[in-house]
Design a binder for these strands. Structure first.
Lengths: 137, 137
DNA sequence: ACCAAATTGCGACAAATTTGCAAAACAAAA
DNA sequence: TTTTGTTTTGCAAATTTGTCGCAATTTGGT
């Protein structure tokens, strides 16, 4: 129920602390669709310094707190599966909006097996589907 | 057989011309694995101006001539399925190399259906799997 | 409250990308 | 092939984006 609990646990486990700036960045991510670095930096303006936003997201990424995604040909950040349900993304190339697609166990399995069949050891993947959304058909 | 034919057709269809700089950039892409913008700019040095490389890739991307991929947390460009077999990418997070994975008809279908099931009209997708390659297990 | 360690903000930088504009290349038509 | 109007290019400057060192502040542990 309290998302800060998981966040704090993850940080302390890695000898890092839940500071105000980090909380602020986390809040910017909460309940939002994936955002670019520029947007995050701008939204943090006055509160958290640019360099700190960069450093925080790098840390969060390293600790698996956020995922860095390629959506609509731009990098965007979103909270990871620890805080959000696992899902994929659909990008509408007409209106530019991006949508969440529910995870599909069968698909996940098949993705892994495609890589395994070639001798690779998959740890994860990133899937973006693009085309038109229902509103833009 | 002649890749320039498709390229020229795509350009003229969009009231754009196949100029020398554009041909050069296209050649840099041909028969190569995905490359970063920086590499392309450097390889074009002396032949095509930096700004032109940027503008050309933006155009190519818009017309579906190239795909911009997210490989190992870097953007890379490669010719699209019109010029290359459709395939996926595997990124080894240990050695940093990236590999092509052959397309799998069953997987492709399933990806499309996942989106279609939610009311979207998929036109394509991008899949990057990451983990360890055979050499780095 | 005090101390040692971690973290931040603040420049200053370096690198990457964009932009305006005059010159050059181009396509179309005569 | 020459003209004409349009597109595209190169150049240089400006902007944006991302990085770095370091002193000042904050943090967690006593």
């Amino acid at each position: 129920m309290d998302p800060y609990k998981d966040l704090k646990a993850l940080l302390t486990k890695n000898r890092a602390s839940l500071t105000k700036p980090r909380q602020k960045v986390f809040d910017l991510l909460m309940g939002q669709s994936p955002q670019t670095m520029q947007v995050l930096v701008k939204r943090a303006e006055g509160k958290v310094d640019r360099a700190t936003v960069y450093r925080t997201l790098e840390l969060f990424e390293r600790l698996g707190i956020v995922n860095r995604l390629n959506i609509g040909w731009k990098y965007k950040y979103e909270l990871s599966d620890i805080f959000l349900e696992h899902h994929h993304h659909f990008y509408c190339s007409n209106c530019g909006k991006s949508y969440d697609l529910p995870a599909n166990p069968m698909l996940e399995t098949m993705v892994d097996s495609v890589a395994a069949k070639e001798g690779f050891s998959p740890r994860g993947h990133q899937l973006e589907i693009y085309g038109h959304c229902p509103n833009c058909r």
